[in-house]
Design a protein around this nucleic acid. Structure first.
Lengths: 207, 207, 207, 207
DNA sequence: TATGAATGAGGGTTCATTCAT
DNA sequence: GATGAATGAACCCTCATTCAT
C-alpha cells in the first residue's frame, strides 16, 4: 500500500531531448494502435504509451486526434504506395504479374497489418472528407500501377477483385492455399488485354 | 441522516407503455447509428435517442454494448441474407444473373446502408470472435447462393470481386456508370462454368 | 449468437405459488448477501437472485431497500438473541460461564456470519436511527443475559471485551488458539463479582 | 459528417490552478465523506464536492475508487498512529496510563471521527485483502504501544476491551459518564503485570 | 520547446423504484 | 396477489483537450 503519486503514466522519465523524428514515431505508433485496437481504441494515451512518449507530446505535435488520424493515414498511404510500386518492380511477364498479385493477396503477417489499415482507412473515409480524398488518391494510384500491365478498365476490375480477396483472406480462419489465390487471380488476368507486358513469356528482363 | 444506500430516487412520472417489439426497434436504431456514425459512434445514448427510447431501455434489453452489437449484426445478416436470396429469385439466364449482380453492386441509396454495415461487420469481426463466426457464416451463405449459378471456386472469386466493387462504389464521389459495372461483372461471369443456368440465353421467363 | 431475450434474470420460471414464508426466505437471503457482499452489495437484484425469487417479489414484499434492511436486521437480532440465550442455558458455574463466552468469541464458521452481521448492524446504526434503536436493544438484551452471572457494570465491561475480541478474531488471518481466548476471558471474569453463580464449582446442576 | 472519434469537446474555460497538495486534500475529503455517509456513500462525486475539486480531479489522482479508499485508509492509519503514540507520550504511572486509555475511549467529538473510520476500516478489511494487511498492521502497532505498559497478552486483551468500549460509546445515545469508563478500564489494567511503569504510583513526573 | 496536471463531457453500466399486466 | 418491463438518476471511469510551468 504505497503512495505512488498520481497515475501510472510515467513512461520512465528519461530525458529524451533532441528526438527529431518523434513525430514519425508517434505516427507509426498510432498506426500500430489502430491495427490492434481499432479506430475507437486509438486514443492519445494509447498512442503515447505505444510510442513511449509523454502524453503531452502527442497533443503537442498534432493539433487534435483528427489530425493525428489524418497524418497517420497519410503516412500509411505513402509507405504503402512505395511497397506497391516495389512489388511490381521488375515484373515483365504475365506470370510475374500474377505472382506479384498473389503476393499482395496472400495473407502474410506483414500484409495483415496493411490490409487492416487499408480497410480502416476505407471505412473512416466514408465519414471524413479529408480521408476520402486520401483514399481515392490511393485507389487511383494503385490502379495506375495495375494499368501499366492491363487496361484501365481491367485495372479497376482487378483492383476490386484484389480488395475483396484481401478482405476475405483477412477474415478466413483457416490458412488459405496459395494455389487457390493464384487460380483466382490468374483467371481475372487472363481476360485482360495484352497491353503492358514488355516481355514475352520466359524472356528475361533486367529492369 | 438515514442510511443512504447506493442511491435514492424519484422516478419522473412518464407514460410507461408496454412495447413488445421494442427490442427490434432498438436493434434497427443501432444499425442506423452504426451506418451514420460508425462503430465508435454507436453508443447506448445515441442508440436510445435514435430509437426514441429512454437510455435505460437499451441497457435493460441488452446486457452490454457487445451484446447489442452482436445482436444488431445478427439481425442485419438475417435481413440481408433474405434480400440476397430474393435478388436471385427467378434468375434463370446468364444475362439475368449478371443484371442481379449489377443491382447488387451499383450504388443505390438503399444499397449504401447494407454495404456500410457489411464492411463494419467485417472490420469488427477482426477483433471479435463471435462476430467473426457470424461474418464467416454470412460469407459462406452468400457464396452458396452464387454457387447455384457458377462453380464453387468461381463463386468465391465472384464474391470477392463484388465485395471490392461495392467498396469502390461506396467511396467513389462521382456517379458511376451502370454500364461500367455491368461490363466488369459480365467479364467475371464469362469465365465461369456453365453449370447452374437452367434456361438458355434469350429464352423468356415469366417471373 | 442466439437471441436470448432481455437479460439473464429468469430464475427458472417455476410456478411457485403459495409460498407463505417467502418473506422470510427473502430476509435470510438479504442477510446472506450482506455477509458476502457488504452493505453496498445488498441490492434488490442480489437478494432476489439469492432467494431464488423474481425481482418484483422483493419490492412487493418490502416497501423499499431501507425497510428490507431494517427487517433483515430485525430478524438477525431475533435469531441471534435466541442463540445467545441458548448459549448460557444451563450454565451454572464460573467455568461453564467462561467456556460459553469462549464459544462466543472463538471464530467458528458459524460464528463468522453472525459476527459480520453484528458489525454491519453496528456501523449501519450509526447513520440510521431505526437501526440504532435496534442495535441498542440488542446490546441491552445481551448485557442483561451477562448480568445474570456478573454485575451490571461488569456485564457492560465484559460485553465490550467480547465485542472487541470478536472483531479481532474476525480480522485475524492465522488461526487463533482457543486457550488464548479462554485466558483473556477468564481474566476478565475473574474480576467480576460473585453474584449469579447458583452452583459452586464442580456441583452438578440440572437446569 | 466528420469522423466523430470517441468524443469532441470544448473545455469550459475555468481557472486551472496548480495545486500541489490536492492529492492530500482529496484524501481528507474522502475520509470526511466516509465518516458522514459510510462506505456506500463514498463516491467520486461526493468526495470531489467535499474537497471542492472537479470530478475529474479525483479520477486523475487516483486510479480507481479502490485505490482512493486504500490510500485514504492508509492516511488515516498514519495519522491515527501518531495520535495514539502522542496519547501515551509522557505516561509514566498506572494512573496516567488509565487516564490516557479513558481519553481514548470516552467519546469526544474529535474521537468520534477516528472511531468511525476505524470501524469502517475493520469492516472493509473483511473483504479487501489490501485493507486487511493495513488493518492488521494498525492493530499490531497499537498493541505494541500498549505492550510498553502491560504484557503482550494483556495488551491484546486491553486492546479488545478498548475496541469494544469505543464501539459502545459510539452507539450509546445518552452521554456516558467518564467515571464508568474509568472504572472499567482501571479494572482491566489492574490485572495486568507490573512491567513497564517506570515510575511508582504517586511519583510526580514533569512531562 | 515540451510536459503533465487539470478539467468536465460523455461513455458503459447498475440500480431503486414504479406500474401495467 | 405477483411479476418483470420500464425508467432515469447516479455511478465509475476514460478521454480529448487546455494551459501553467
Amino acid at each position: 500500500m504505497t503512495l505512488p503519486g498520481p497515475r501510472a503514466q510515467d513512461t520512465g522519465r528519461r530525458p529524451r531531448r533532441h528526438d527529431p523524428d518523434r513525430r514519425v514515431r508517434i505516427l507509426d505508433a498510432a498506426l500500430d494502435v489502430l491495427v490492434e485496437q481499432g479506430m475507437a481504441g486509438m486514443t492519445h494515451r494509447q498512442v503515447a504509451a505505444r510510442a513511449d512518449v509523454p502524453l503531452g507530446s502527442v497533443t503537442y505535435h498534432f493539433a487534435g486526434l483528427a489530425e493525428l488520424r489524418a497524418q497517420a493515414f497519410t503516412r500509411f498511404v505513402e509507405l504503402q504506395t512505395a511497397v506497391f510500386e516495389a512489388l511490381f518492380d521488375g515484373v515483365g511477364t504475365r506470370e510475374e504479374f500474377v505472382e506479384a498479385l498473389v503476393d499482395l493477396v496472400h495473407a502474410s503477417p506483414a500484409r495483415q497489418r496493411s490490409a487492416v489499415l487499408g480497410f480502416e482507412l476505407h471505412l473512416a473515409a466514408l465519414r471524413d472528407p479529408g480521408l476520402r480524398v486520401l483514399a481515392e488518391a490511393w485507389t487511383r494510384s494503385s490502379q495506375e500501377v495495375l494499368a501499366r500491365f492491363v487496361g484501365a478498365a481491367d485495372a479497376a476490375r482487378l483492383d476490386a477483385l484484389l480488395e475483396g480477396m484481401i478482405m476475405h483472406a483477412l477474415l478466413a480462419t483457416g490458412p488459405r492455399s496459395r494455389e487457390a489465390a493464384r487460380a483466382a487471380v490468374a483467371k481475372a488476368v487472363e481476360l485482360s488485354g495484352e497491353a503492358g507486358f514488355p516481355r514475352t513469356q520466359g524472356e528475361n528482363h533486367v529492369r
